[in-house]
């Protein structure tokens, strides 16, 4: 396309040099006029804050008054060595691994089952995606009700299973993280199912039909034909799942506030508590940058070693 534009411009570039220069200045002004407002806003509110945070992160600062107490990189060092931050990071990684090992495979299975010539296909897609349009706050409130110690799901289980003793789903530090993961899956699996459904649509029916004609069992078709062709979609889905897992906040904050006894603390709730409840802004800024560094580092490595295989899907 760019080729044809260039040749079109050369043909029309008959006017003398002076004219052409004016034309180019005009083009540059147009470019600037169209681009500057968005670049300015984006730079001011996405990039500039990170640079400010890098600066604030080097101070012991409560957010008010002058920046006087320069502590160098101590804040960053303290974040990385704080047991609670490491615990929060472990929780993020646990959610991440559970997502990759349970949520995404389940999404692939459901997408395969819901694809192809099956009645009610559109209905299942609509239903599976529905939780994704609810706010995480509403999701958290509904599930807090269902997971109460003395009603909700416990009530049903007590009726169905004789001798069942109510489980404090959100109150037991040993299980609460896994319970939260179930809620996370409930809300996010539809997004991945829809991604996979789109990916499955891109697989030509001739390929799977041919495999079936050759006598391949349905499972062989899935493993030898469908999954390899679904590769690019899986790699994107994994990427989004990891980035999402590293920054959970809304749902967990409303359901547990990181408790009980920090059992569902994530990096984001940790950062929120230091920044907006204890007002240790300098330290909070350092935490923000550490989280950003972890996400950014992962994204670059993933881009370099995994996504680069799918050139069309490259980020930039």
């Amino acid at each position: 396309m760019m080729q044809s534009r260039a040749s079109a411009m050369e043909i029309s570039a008959a006017p003398p040099n002076r004219m052409r220069r004016q034309f180019n200045t005009g083009r540059m002004l147009t470019v600037a006029a169209f681009l500057l407002p968005s670049i300015a806003l984006y730079s001011l509110l996405v990039f500039y804050p990170l640079f400010r945070a890098a600066y604030y992160g080097m101070f012991d600062w409560n957010g008010l008054g002058p920046l006087t107490d320069n502590v160098g990189i101590d804040n960053f060092r303290n974040v990385l060595s704080d047991g609670l931050f490491r615990k929060a990071l472990r929780h993020n990684v646990t959610i991440l691994l559970l997502s990759l090992l349970i949520q995404l495979p389940l999404a692939i299975v459901l997408a395969i089952l819901a694809s192809g010539n099956i009645r009610g296909r559109a209905f299942f897609r609509t239903v599976f995606f529905l939780p994704y349009v609810l706010s995480e706050v509403v999701t958290a409130v509904i599930w807090s009700f269902l997971l109460q110690p003395n009603s909700g799901i416990n009530d049903v289980l007590e009726r169905v299973i004789p001798g069942f003793k109510a489980v404090p789903w959100l109150g037991d530090p040993d299980i609460v993280l896994y319970v939260v993961f179930v809620v996370i899956t409930w809300r996010f699996i539809g997004f991945h199912i829809v991604l996979y459904l789109a990916g499955l649509q891109g697989i030509p029916a001739e390929l799977t039909d041919a495999a079936k004609l050759d006598g391949a069992s349905p499972l062989r078709v899935v493993f030898d034909v469908v999954l390899p062709l679904l590769g690019p979609t899986i790699r994107i889905s994994v990427f989004l799942s990891v980035i999402g897992s590293l920054q959970f906040f809304d749902l967990i904050w409303v359901m547990t506030q990181g408790g009980p006894v920090n059992a569902t603390e994530t990096m984001a709730t940790y950062m929120y508590k230091y920044s907006f409840q204890r007002f240790e802004i300098g330290y909070g800024a350092a935490v923000s940058l550490v989280i950003f560094g972890i996400c950014f580092g992962f994204a670059l490595l993933y881009q370099r070693f995994v996504l680069s295989r799918d050139y069309d899907n490259a980020l930039a």
Partner: peptide, 18 residues
């Protein structure tokens, strides 16, 4: 496109300060 790698959750404190 670098902005795609920086969700608002992570940048919330820096953004708040600005």
């Amino acid at each position: 496109m670098l902005g795609l790698l920086c969700p608002i959750t992570i940048a919330i404190l820096p953004v708040y300060l600005v």
